[in-house]
Each structure stands twice: as C-alpha cells, then as structure tokens.
Design a protein around this nucleic acid. Structure first.
Lengths: 283, 283
DNA sequence: TGGGATTTGTTCGTATGTATG
DNA sequence: ACATACATACGAACAAATCCC
C-alpha cells in the first residue's frame, strides 16, 4: 500500500496541508504544529517526523528555528533580469532593434531589472595575479596581473547579486586610472574606458551560465540554507572590444530563488523586452 | 574546538579524504569504507555517520547503494550548449557576425553543442488546449488549441535534454500539415514553416532561464536523485516572426550536472563562438 | 538579570526491512 | 539459504536556542 517510506508520506501530507493553507494565520508567518504534536498526529516517532521536516526544509518549503518552531517559507516573486543588451553600440543597430525608438535604451549596464531599482555598494578594488580562468578568458599570459572590482547589489534591501569584474592591470598604466579607485564610476566602466586613451568600445560579449550550490560565504550573504539546497546561478561574461580583444571578465552570482534570467536575440517585440516574465509561472 | 556538529566534521573529513584520492582504485569506482568501519574510525554512532553520508550524497559527492556500499561519484565533463544563434536570418547580418565567413553557420537548430552529435528521438505529437503560460507567450486567446511536439535528445547515449514545442493549431489548417506528423522534419521546423503558405521567417526570440528541482519523471529519465538535489535548467524560448508575432514556444529541460549554457551577443571572436567553455572550471 | 518552560538540534542505542551477491 | 551492507523506524537523553515571567 505505502508506495513510499513513512517519512516521505508524512512529508507529502504536510506539503498538501501547507498548500491548502491549513497553517496560515492572518498576521505573521504560518507555523506548523510542533514536532511532538506531529508525532502524535501521524503516529510516528519524532525522528520520522524530523526526517519529513528535513526533506521539506531542503526543498525550501519550510524552515525550522531552534527554540521557536517550524514555519512555512514565503517564496518571493523572482526578479526578472535581462542579460542581453538592448543595443550594444549607440547609433548602430547591430544588436536588438527597438522599433519604437531609442527611449530607455540601456547601453552600459550589465543587467536591467523590470520595475525595480538595484542598489550597488561601493566597489572593493584589488590587484591580483590572474587565475587560470581569468587569464584564459582575458587572453592574458600566465603571471599577468589584473584589477579586480567587486560589488554587491541589493534590490529593496534584499541581497540580489555578487559581482566581480577583472581588467588587465595594463589598462591603468595606459590611462584608465579610475579603475583603481574604490568608488563607483557613474557613467559605467565601459563608457569610461571609451573616454580614456584606450578608446575601448564594447562590440560584443560571451556569457557562460552555470548552476552550483552556494559556498558558505555566498550562503551567508544571501541568507541561503548552508545545505546547498538552493543553487546559485554563476554567470561568466567576457566582453570584447572593436578589435576582438577581451577587455573585461565578469563573474556574477545570482541566487536562483529570487532571479530569472532573460535573453533577447534578434528582433523581439518591445513589450517583451520591456516586461520580461509577465505571466510565466508553473512549468 | 568543534566549530561544527559532529556529523558535519565527519562529512568534511570524508570529502577531504575523497579529494585526496584516498579511496581511489585502479579499476572501477572508488568505494568508501562501510558504515560500520567509519563508525569505528570516527568514534561516532552509525546514525551520525549516516548523517554525514547523506549530506555528501545530497551534494552528489558520493552515492550509496543498498547491499553494495558507498561510492565516490564520477562527475562527467559538462556539455557546453550555445543558445544564441550564429546568424538568425541567412544573408542578413542582423545577428552575430562571423568575420571569417559563413562556414558552419547554424540557422535552424535551437542549440549547438561543441564537438558532440546529439541524437533526437522521433517526436511525440499531440493537440491540446493551450495552458495559461503557453497561451500567454504565443499571444493566443484562452481556449485556443496548440500542436505540441515533444522530443528527447541524447548525446553519446546519455540523456541530455527534454524539449516540447508548441505551435498554434491554426498553422496546420493554413498549410503546415507536417506539424501533425510524428516524424522529424529534416530541414527544421522553422525552415519548413517558411516553405509553407504561412511564409514565416524567424526574426528573433526571447529566452527565459529558470532553475528548479526535477520532477519525478524528469529525475527518472535523466537518472537524477529523486531528492531533487541536482537541479535542472528550464528554458522557455518564444520565437517571433518578421511581423513580431510569436509563432513557437519551446520548453527545454537540461540537467545542470551535465550542461552549461552559453550566449553570444554582438560581435564575438569566432574561436569563442566555435569552442565555448574551453578552460572554464572552478570559480 | 535570572531561571524555568518550550521547542528544535544532536547523538546515541537498537531492531527490523530490503537489496545484492 | 546465507552473509553483507545500506534503509527505515523506533525510543531516549541531553544540548542549545528562544521565550516569558
């Protein structure tokens, strides 16, 4: 009869009851009965109940807090992040064409988020020897040094992404001195590099998207369970200039529980560009 | 001294020993000592050892098999999948330009995989009422019917992706009768639609990327643990024709343990287009 | 500030079931 | 049929976090 183990049946039933709203309260978080009561309700041992709760906690359905209880997790609406630029080079239509005109065109930012304003911290700036991965993507010889600019971004006071960009140290000695300053570059780094003697223009970029469990520092920053049950997106962006040389390598970490990624390729209706993810839920 | 719980310390130590290659054997899989021996080695109870092993199993570091033992998991090199087309419309350079010329240009496929040949099953074809999501993306009124074409893809005998495409049923009555046939369309569906009276040309597409645990059917097909510890990518692609109308909606499932996704935007050196992910590991 | 009650976290022991060879 | 090894389930004790008075 029992197709599943007992702990699994308890878990499934609890999830059903959670989705039916049985534990909802008017104010505050929905709280499950305490383990002792569940033990009585399901005629199971406390360990079996705890196996069920652990499984639900791993799936981010509930959250347990020592001394307090087990609570139903509120899952926020995800941010919809568009990772493809609208136009890449101002004045040229070599990328996405917005038939309606040029308003709201986004040249310099890496990502735009529908309807919400991200808050960036001031960057932390370091000079390091390039790791193998960084050297590979930037096309640098081993032992090269790079400037690293690290930022955290939040939306509505919630941590949203971690970003680290790498530039050849050479850029600094050739005129881009602001790269070493630990403060935001208002017009964006790409625009700034174009204003310096380097005269770098972004012609295109390559993105690689990976998914993995967060490391402890990331889990702490984003408030993710340290079991690694909520993965993070890890995007690697290599930007190329007008000569086909890589000039920037950016690693960004996005928790998967609050982000969806979007790309537009070719000609796409403006409403899709402007309002990604309007009705996308449930697969 | 003990910063972590005992089970966690056992787990960390086991991972260290695994990475040090302590359990490697010349032929076959590396096998850990049995639980009873680990219990003795760490002076812990069997349940504590099992807590550690469960944590490692959730992270796909090891795999336990009843009656056999606990084995170190072999993690294969991921496939690198490029989701941006090289050129979108033959003859026009409105998408990625390959300076070297037109060789190897990929017009019709949704995805190209570096150095490996995917094997597609014959499609399963159905007619359904459009769900809310499908109707939304295709811009169809409620109660519309759609043709659904479902395929599984494998690379080197390993299941690699699950794909379902939706087309307005209207297309069939307007001449695209092959959409209803349960066999592959060699030139690709997009090219075929252009050859019919519909004269549809793909002008662009929008991709949304999500990550979630696999459902039981997906876990079974891909051989993923049913705990959901290995997430799958779920990509939603909406393709638009020359008039800005959506003509296809495609949902693809890719297990994250064997896939990395790539996009090229703007002008990118051909070697990056042709050989994605050449040296990208370790973050 | 403290102490006791409540609730979850960790660890142990033990028994039995199930898959494998 | 038997031994091996992991899976499930039970019970119990104490620790740690939280809350309330």
């Amino acid at each position: 009869m029992a197709r599943h183990a007992k702990w699994r049946e308890v878990a499934e039933d609890l999830r059903r009851r959670i989705e039916a709203g049985e534990f909802n309260v008017k104010t505050g978080r929905a709280q499950l009965p305490k383990e002792l009561d569940l033990q009585g309700h399901y005629d199971a041992s406390r360990n079996t109940v705890r196996d069920a709760l652990r499984w639900l906690a791993d799936q981010r359905v509930v959250e347990t807090e020592a001394g307090k209880g087990t609570f139903v997790l509120f899952r926020p609406e995800p941010f919809h992040v568009t990772l493809s630029a609208r136009r890449l080079i101002p004045g040229e239509e070599n990328e996405i064409t917005v038939p309606g005109g040029g308003e709201g065109v986004d040249y310099s930012k890496d990502a735009s988020v529908q309807g919400r304003v991200p808050f960036d911290t001031e960057p932390r700036v370091e000079v390091q020897f390039a790791s193998g991965q960084v050297a590979h993507w930037l096309g640098l010889p081993p032992e090269s040094q790079v400037v690293l600019r690290h930022q955290t971004r939040s939306i509505e006071d919630k941590p949203w992404s971690l970003q680290t960009s790498y530039y050849p140290l050479e850029f600094v000695t050739k005129g881009a001195v602001k790269l070493l300053e630990a403060k935001d570059i208002p017009q964006g780094v790409v625009a700034y590099l174009g204003e310096t003697d380097l005269k770098i223009t972004q012609a295109g970029y390559h993105d690689e998207i990976n998914v993995r469990p967060p490391n402890p520092a990331e889990a702490d920053f984003f408030g993710l369970p340290e079991t690694g049950s909520v993965p993070v997106y890890e995007t690697f962006r290599t930007a190329y200039d007008q000569h086909g040389n890589a000039f920037r390598f950016t690693v960004t970490i996005w928790p998967s529980d609050r982000n969806r990624l979007h790309y537009n390729v070719g000609r796409v209706p403006p409403r899709v560009i402007d309002e990604p993810g309007q009705a996308s839920s449930e697969g």
